[in-house]
Write a protein that binds this DNA or RNA. Structure first.
Lengths: 119, 119
DNA sequence: TGTCTATGTTGACGACTGTCGAATCAGGTG
DNA sequence: CACCTGATTCGACAGTCGTCAACATAGACA
């Protein structure tokens, strides 16, 4: 987390994960890992925070810019941490503010599972 | 797996839903609706059941064929109902057995949000 | 150095969720 | 008709989750 690199510095055992859901049944282990990512996006506040970061210019945003989602700031921090734990976001402190950015590889993996990118 | 009909017999307010997450921040309402779908897939058992149905031939499977996910049958039924409530599955009773099938439009919508499926 | 602003952490509370056993409903078969 | 199998619903329980107020930490600036 030193600086900007698109290199997917993946968490322990975070491959492309899984084939499209329409291709083959998931194993128990795959399901556990994948469900964790879906669960991270399964909360309205978290989903909104994630979209705020993902749609921000450069794919990064500081907390001060996305704290307007209707909950208290500790709660925002809590959800941001959950997203980070799920591997969907990475954080970087730059001076006074902390910037969050999306992990594009994980996003693509989830989209691949759902959208059957057979093309 | 070119199913016969892609007809989306939509649930109450089940449009294409939302733009890709990387395009624009979701509104609160969009986030609530979309998070419900992600949450439905946010449980390992449910995700496995869903993949079992989705990957079955014809996109449909009877309960008797997907009950081997490590939990009791009432629990399977419970999760199946959740998936149905979320609009991800539809059920149909055919004689003795009940068949579940995936709702392709919802799958595509989620994939579109995450991975911008292709283009 | 001290103080102020910006984030993250802790502890607690209410609500929801996943799970099971038992009971119930639906349909087929003798 | 009675009976049996498959599937859902009911009631209850433990565990997790989302939320907040209060406190702690990190860095900037005077």
């Amino acid at each position: 987390m030193s600086n900007a690199k698109a290199l997917p510095l993946l968490d322990p055992g975070a491959e492309p994960c899984c084939p499209p859901l329409t291709e083959r049944p998931l194993t128990a282990e795959e399901a556990v890992r994948t469900a964790a990512m879906f669960k991270a996006l399964g909360d309205p506040v978290r989903l909104r925070l994630f979209s705020l970061v993902a749609s921000h210019e450069g794919g990064e945003a500081c907390v001060c810019d996305i704290s307007d989602v209707g909950v208290s700031q500790p709660t925002v921090s809590h959800h941001l941490k959950k997203l980070k734990d799920a591997g969907l976001l990475t954080s970087e402190r730059r001076g006074t503010w902390v910037y969050y950015r999306v992990e594009p590889s994980v996003l693509a993996a989830m989209g691949h599972m759902l959208g059957r990118a057979t093309a």
